[in-house]
Amino acid sequence: MPTVIEKLTIAMLCDLHKKLGVESQYDVDLVTQAVGEDDLWILRWAYNDFNEIDNPEEVVFVGDVFDMFSFIGRGYAALSQDDKTKVDQSSDHVAAWLTFSGYDGNNESRYRSIAHTLVNRLNRFTEFSDVANNNSHCPMVNTYARMYAAFEPIRKNVIMREMTADEIIQVVSEAVHPDNR
């Protein structure tokens, strides 16, 4: 992490860059955000020059969650009507778990910020642009983690194909806490 003095220097250089209208390969606002919020991972995702910067666990997790919901959404859309009915009837609450619901604004603001930055600042997972900053109003990290644990082994086998109804049901059913099954 940059020191306080290094952060101040970068912020001031970014301000000068912007005020003078200097053309650059770097998005000055993105650099300011990355340094100011101690989110240097943003630079790794935005530019090829920063591969030595590690992705924090939370960033990897949010990316994995978006990947999972991408597969669920595409898979469900590609199902036959009979298979959609099978998925829909697999649980009373299945429809709520077929799409990304966001993160809790009070308790998961870090995840919510990462989701917003990935989608709306870095143009990744853009199919979630309408929901990336959603406030779920309840904690979702543990729910998504259970779902992803079921999805991860499936993910390895969905190369060049979409998820099946049974695979979708398997993943979505993990949204219900084990104590409530």
Rank of each mutant, 00 (worst) to 15 (best):
M1N: 09
E6A: 11
K7I: 10
L8M: 13
L8E: 13
T9M: 06
I10G: 03
A11G: 09
C14K: 12
D15E: 13
L16S: 05
L16P: 00
K19H: 08
L20I: 01
V22R: 01
V22K: 01
E23Y: 08
E23G: 05
Q25R: 15
L30W: 04
L30S: 05
V31D: 05
T32S: 13
A34D: 09
V35T: 10
G36T: 11
G36N: 04
D38S: 06
D38L: 06
L40H: 04
I42E: 02
L43G: 02
A46V: 05
Y47E: 00
N48H: 12
D49F: 07
D49S: 12
D49I: 00
F50S: 00
F50A: 01
F50T: 00
N51I: 06
E52W: 13
E52K: 10
E52Y: 11
D54T: 06
N55A: 11
N55P: 00
P56D: 00
E57T: 02
E57P: 01
E57H: 02
E58I: 03
V59K: 01
F61D: 00
V62C: 01
G63D: 05
D64Q: 15
D67P: 09
F69C: 10
S70I: 08
F71S: 02
R74E: 12
G75T: 11
G75M: 11
Y76G: 09
A78V: 03
S80V: 12
S80I: 07
D83V: 04
K84F: 01
K84H: 08
Q89E: 15
A95P: 05
D104H: 11
N107V: 02
S109Y: 14
R112S: 10
S113P: 13
S113Y: 15
I114K: 08
I114Y: 02
T117K: 04
T117A: 06
L118Y: 00
L118I: 12
N120H: 10
R121Q: 12
L122I: 13
F125C: 05
T126L: 11
E127W: 08
E127M: 13
A132E: 12
S136M: 15
H137E: 13
P139E: 05
M140P: 04
T143R: 04
A145P: 10
M147I: 07
Y148R: 14
A150E: 05
F151R: 00
P153R: 03
I154H: 07
R155H: 08
I159A: 11
M160N: 12
R161E: 12
A165W: 00
D166E: 06
D166P: 06
D166K: 02
V171A: 03
A175R: 05
V176F: 10
V176E: 07
H177S: 13
D179Y: 15
